[in-house]
Amino acid sequence: MIEMQDAAYGYGAEPLLSDLSLHLPPGSFHFLTGPSGAGKTTFLKLCYAELLPTGGNISLFGHTAGGLSRDGIADIRQRIGVVHQDCKFLDHLSVSENIALPLSVTGKGGMAQDSNLNELVGWVGLTARAEALPPELSGGERQRAALARAIIMDPDLILADEPTGNVDWDMSLRLLNLLVELNKLGKTVVIATHDLALIRAAKQRVQARVLRIQGGQITAAGADL
């Protein structure tokens, strides 16, 4: 699904990440941890081609990231659901319109999809808030709406960047349960977080691999997690 071979990325002359070599197989569950500024978000951006590697090679669904056209990148992103900490909604559209946005931009909206949309909105517990505007939502509601938008296209890969950063523990567990449920449906999940309690809670529910980014390198985390 995603394969990195000696991949590197730097914003300037100094590389932020280097020698990244790993494989994210289909149906796997990964946590990405490390101190703030270590490069977790950069790693995720490399996974959905918002950034392209400055060294090495990254393969996304069998395509070399550096060789993708802009349309090719758009097509790859239709197979990836991304959940950001700040959610990134279009504030002039309702919650349900934001959730359905990936369908709209790919011309896949329609009666059948409307039914799926309602089901999905119910699944994340936002039926009563479906016509609200994003600024009217609480932090937890925003994260659930972002998750619903990330999975409406039935993606193969879900990338979540600090999805529980702005919510309380109960909501964190609720979001985690949704992601675990998706993983059991065969989705690959990668969650960037420095919430160790969340990682421990997840390991009770799913077989998760924990990766740590430190000093620009990525390593498998120890038994403490």
Partner: peptide
């Protein structure tokens, strides 16, 4: 610009 970034994020092509 922010709207465009969100659209690209969810898989919109430039032509759309």
């Amino acid at each position: 610009e922010q709207v465009i970034r969100v659209l690209r994020l969810v898989g919109a092509r430039d032509s759309y």
